[in-house]
């Protein structure tokens, strides 16, 4: 009898421990609120243009405008379209050319329609005293949606009429650094 009781009690104890063990004070619905929101810093484009770059080779005179274009296919990628919530674009110029520049960054789609546009006036500098300027733009709703349709970036430098245009002997250079701060919500 003693044996049976011991066994009975042990079994009851084991079953009780197993049954009363529970998962309490937890709320698994919180899983729906999980949202990783990484912020990525990424270089964009850069360039170094010396004064002679602004001379039109055919006429050997200052050009009215120079530009270059690169595809940036990542902007319209599924990942960006679905997850990119906002972005900061930063453009840093160092100008040691004695000339003002009007810079346009044009974000275009495949049919060359303008999706986003940044215009910056870069003031003239001198070789001994380059002028630094930095511009940061925030792309948030609603522009971010059209921005994400862009597939290429045109870097366009216009030279407004001036009494002292750039000549073959002009000195200095115009440097551009640029980056994007990308705010994702996954």
């Amino acid at each position: 009898m003693i044996k049976q009781n011991i066994i009975k009690i042990s079994l009851i104890a084991l079953v009780l421990v197993s049954l009363t063990s529970c998962v309490s004070d937890v709320d698994f619905d919180q899983a729906e609120d999980i949202m990783p929101s990484p912020t990525l810093e990424s270089n964009l484009i850069y360039s170094t243009l010396i004064a002679p770059n602004f001379i039109d080779q055919q006429i050997q005179l200052e050009a009215a405008m120079v530009s270059d274009t690169t595809r940036l296919e990542v902007i319209s990628s599924d990942f960006f379209v679905d997850q990119l919530a906002k972005a900061n674009l930063s453009f840093k110029f160092t100008n040691s050319i004695q000339r003002d520049f009007l810079v346009d960054f044009e974000f275009l789609n495949d049919t060359n329609e303008l999706r986003y546009h940044v215009q910056i006036l870069v003031h003239s500098g001198v070789v001994t005293n380059p002028i630094l300027s930095e511009t940061t733009v925030l792309i948030d709703e609603p522009e971010i949606t059209t921005f994400k349709e862009a597939t290429k970036l045109v870097y366009k430098i216009s030279l407004p009429p001036s009494t002292s245009p750039i000549g073959p002997n002009s000195q200095g250079q115009l440097d551009l650094q640029s980056k994007a701060t990308l705010y994702f919500e996954l």
Binding site: N43, I45, S47, Q57, Q58, A63, V66, S67, D68, L72
Partner: peptide
């Protein structure tokens, strides 16, 4: 380091690099 735009000579008209 990013994409370097080298601005090919203007006679090329538009950047094709």
């Amino acid at each position: 380091e990013g994409i370097e735009l080298v601005f090919p000579p203007i006679i090329n008209n538009e950047g094709t690099t």
